[in-house]
Write a protein that binds this DNA or RNA. Structure first.
Length: 213
DNA sequence: TGCCAGGCCGGGT
DNA sequence: ACCCGGCATGGC
């Protein structure tokens, strides 16, 4: 896979995740579900300005108040519920300390996250990789689109299938997984809008079976 | 102006 | 086991 190198040469280091603490990154991962990061930043700033970026404080916040603060991130009612689900599990099982989650074995931590309603595979893996610096590859809608349009996958693969394509062939390396996913998102933002059924001009090439570069 | 954004859940087939 | 509607704001 020298695709990584080509993407890196074109887009440069992405510096993910934009967030100062593991907890902030985790909250951002939930808030950014199907939502642009610029909107999420406003929501995070609302919390940060008020010194609310802690599990216990956010959990104590009345739902209506929390919803008001995260409003700019969209889906604020459902996301309030998802945040509260996450926060109550975190306070219950780890005394509100997200770092304690990352002291568990990788797939145990992953299962713990997935057991929370509102946290799916991408959000869980984003938290593990970008907040916990654990070696797991994040798959998102852009990853599916790009691979499908280059005929690397047929299109009916599952999240875990696609994750295995990367993790099965890449060196297990947190920095590499971090940068690679971020570069895929950067590529997607530029070339892989929903409304384009097949890619004609993505600046990628794959060794086989078809090369669209 | 409509389309899109770093998904996920729950109910229906 | 899929399929699909719902969720909502802000930027281009």
């Amino acid at each position: 896979m020298e695709i990584f190198k080509r993407l890196f040469d074109r887009f440069g280091p992405q510096g993910w995740w934009p967030g100062e603490t593991a907890f902030e990154v985790s909250i951002g991962a939930i808030l950014t579900q199907n939502t642009s990061w610029t909107n999420v930043e406003k929501a995070i700033n609302n919390l940060k300005e008020r010194g609310l970026l802690s599990a216990h404080k956010m959990l104590k916040l009345p739902d209506a108040e929390l919803a008001g603060l995260i409003r700019p991130a969209g889906y604020f009612n459902i996301k309030t519920r998802r945040l509260k689900n996450f926060l109550s599990a975190l306070c219950m099982d780890f005394d509100g300390d997200i770092k304690a989650v990352f002291n568990r074995p990788l797939y145990e931590a992953r299962e713990w996250l997935l057991s929370i309603s509102g946290i799916g595979p991408e959000t869980a893996d984003s938290i593990l990789l970008y907040a916990g610096e654990m070696p797991i590859f994040v798959v998102d809608a852009y990853t599916f689109r790009i691979l499908a349009r280059h005929r690397v996958i047929a299109g009916d693969e599952t999240y875990d299938d696609v994750q295995q394509i990367f993790m099965g062939s890449l060196k297990e390396d947190v920095k590499l997984f971090n940068e690679y996913h971020a570069l895929i998102v950067a590529t997607g933002k530029n070339f892989c809008k929903k409304k384009r059924p097949l890619c004609q001009s993505c600046p990628l090439s794959f060794d086989a079976p078809n090369d669209y570069s």
